[in-house]
Design a protein around this nucleic acid. Structure first.
Length: 575
RNA sequence: CGGGGUGUGGCGAAGUUUGGUAUCGCGCACGGUUCGGGACCGUGAGGCCGGAGGUUCGAAUCCUCUCACUCCGACCA
């Protein structure tokens, strides 16, 4: 392929709406073009990268017995009504209608389609276990797409679904999948991915894990224990708070005019935030009932845990005049009935708290939950924080890091097979529901993540396993006939050897040529120039600059081919 | 959904406070000089300043409304 005819422009200036480097490089390097919020077209270089990633995914999925299938992008609402998700999933699900006004949707995940596909096939235990997967476009109407391909609305995903006759068998397979995913990480050039426990959210099921790439630009928060190695997504991390009981005090009403926030109250009363009890108010999304959650003043609510506890979505509550709640002054003592009242365990064991008095401009001090309230049950609704206590080893060694979620795997159990009535007959002749697992990888996100990690100031440094091309020939001074002839010759010989070559024989300055080569990030660069020709050689430089040497023009293609093979086999580390 | 920000040739920006001929760099086209890290000189094409309404002799600039994008948060396999 000649660079001159490669469709797509490379340019110098960083687009103003790119806030992470991978996104900037993909736009600057002519990989992708913005179409609409979270929606991109791909040029050839991008497509070549993702196609190589897809090939790796296929190989690894096939290696664990997967069979590639293809589900539709557009599905009738009725299919999703079977699982109940047509109603339960929020407007991230793109709901559309056809010409007859019949409801359809754009696939954002394919559990329903998977069950639908194999419902008849899996009627007998003899057929189990099996796994099907697809690589296909998903659409999720994300509230806030960002970072280019890191979080897009339309994206390609490899999603796999496994079916089993027992939880034990699922767990065995789940482990195999975990290993396959680790292999994939390694092959695409991301060996430092960490596996964390996660919340399963709308997918349902009990156990799930995420593969996180630790990076500052990540959008997920991960709690990591530096002591015992415990790792979890902050959403799923258990929060442990130890309170030291202080002196017991009498409960006292305090006039606190115009101080509605916890910060102000503590300042006003000269108390630490750890000795305060704040009220966070939500509304249930299903019946609109108000939920009052009390939590220690300095600690944040983990809304994922709250949603899981309530079993329904929540939204921030709107307090009306006659709601019985006085915004800014809500407290557990003498609170009116009729609300769902929850206590976070961060409040447990504090003898003397300051809290709202349920009366405008008044707070209590000296409040003691055990003494002043009856029948309090504590739950875990708190967000783990940096410096917090590790749920495994009990030390204050939790660090909160940022990461990109590359993969997510779930043990779904029988949620979908039950809801959609998929059954098989076991060897005793009884009907059973198969147990499911699902395993997803975002292809574009993976490519962008590699770019985010493997790069320098000038562009991506693609590992050869997923690089758009293997060799980039720069013909410096292509207006020189002799130079051009040598470069042409090398190009055709390498191509004959089956090497993937991008050939730049444009008549442009060396700076332009090298800059473009940096943006394309091809692992091996070969420079043919008058200077080199004089010595009857050409220059071989790896994109990561670890190798740079000259070699005789005669037989150069053999040396280059050899180098590529060594890179592919891993005996030479490129980047 | 809440809070900020930005919309000016293909890209990046200045101009907006204080109204007065549409400006700069990159890129693009043509000619010439250069030639190993985004060269230089000359010539040229390309924009009714996001949109609608208003104020004014006159609006990119002031006022009202609207749309889009973007960042932070919320939400989220």
């Amino acid at each position: 392929m000649k660079l001159e005819t490669l469709v797509g422009e490379r340019f110098k200036e960083r687009p103003s709406d790119c806030h992470i480097d991978s996104h900037a490089f993909m736009q600057r390097g002519g990989y992708i073009k913005y179409v609409a919020g979270g929606i991109y077209s791909s040029f050839t270089p991008m497509l070549r990268v993702t196609q190589k990633i897809e090939r790796i995914l296929r190989e690894e999925m096939d290696a664990i017995g997967g069979q590639e299938v293809l589900f539709p992008v557009v599905m009738p609402a009725s299919l999703w009504e079977e699982s109940g998700r047509y109603e339960s999933v929020g407007n991230e699900l793109m709901r559309i209608t056809d010409r007859n006004d019949s409801p359809y949707l754009l696939g954002m995940t394919h559990e329903e389609a998977a069950v639908h596909l194999v419902r008849e096939y899996g009627q007998t235990y003899v057929k189990y276990p099996f796994m099907i997967y697809q690589i296909q476009t998903k659409f999720r109407d994300e509230a806030r797409p960002r970072g280019g391909l890191i979080r897009a609305r339309e994206f390609t995903m490899k999603d796999a679904y496994s079916f089993h006759t027992s939880q034990e068998d699922l767990e065995r397979y789940y482990e195999k999948c975990l290993e396959a995913y680790q292999k994939i990480c390694k092959r695409v050039g991301l060996p430092d991915v960490v596996i964390v426990a996660s919340d399963s959210g709308m997918m349902g099921g009990a156990v799930s894990h995420e593969f996180m790439l630790l990076t500052q630009v990540g959008e997920d928060s991960i709690a990591v224990c530096s002591g015992c190695g415990y790792r979890a997504n902050v959403e799923a991390a258990e929060s442990i708070i130890k309170n030291v009981p202080g002196h017991t005090q009498e409960i006292t009403l305090q006039h606190t005019p115009d101080v509605g926030t916890i910060e102000d109250v503590c300042k006003f009363l000269n108390l630490p935030a750890q000795a305060s009890c704040k009220a966070v108010i939500y509304q249930r999304a299903d019946n609109g009932k108000t939920v009052v959650l009390f939590i220690r003043g300095d600690i944040e609510v983990n809304e994922t845990k709250l949603v899981n506890h309530l079993g329904c979505e929540i939204r921030p509550a709107v307090l009306s005049e006659n709601s019985g709640l006085s915004a800014g002054f809500i407290g557990p003592y003498n609170l009116e009935d009729g609300f769902t009242v929850l206590f976070d365990r961060s409040l447990q064991g504090i003898n003397s708290l300051c809290c709202g008095a349920n009366k405008k401009d008044y707070h209590y001090t000296g409040f003691n939950i055990e003494r002043d309230c009856k029948e309090v049950e504590y739950g875990d609704f708190a967000k783990i924080f940096d410096g917090g206590i590790c749920p495994e080893c009990n030390q204050s060694t939790i660090e909160v890091l940022r990461g990109i979620e590359l993969f997510n795997i779930f043990q779904l159990g029988t949620k979908y097979t039950k809801a959609m009535n998929m059954q098989y007959v076991d060897k005793d002749g009884n009907s059973q529901y198969p147990v499911m697992g699902c395993y997803g990888i975002g292809v574009g996100r993976l490519a962008a993540s590699v770019c985010e990690v493997k790069r320098d100031d000038y562009g991506p440094i693609w590992p050869i396993s997923i690089a758009p091309w293997q060799v980039h020939i720069c013909c410096v001074r292509a207006d020189d006939e002799e130079v051009k002839a040598c470069a042409d010759n090398l190009y055709s010989k390498l191509t004959e050897h089956g090497v993937e070559v991008i050939y730049d024989d444009r008549i442009v300055s060396a700076g332009v040529m090298f800059s473009d080569a940096d943006l394309l990030g091809v692992p091996v660069r070969v420079i043919v120039s008058p200077r080199n020709i004089k010595e009857n050689c050409c220059e071989i430089v790896t994109r990561d600059k670890t190798i740079s040497r000259k070699t005789a023009l005669d037989g150069a293609e053999r040396e280059i081919t050899e180098m590529i093979n060594q890179m592919l086999s891993g005996s030479i580390q490129s980047s």
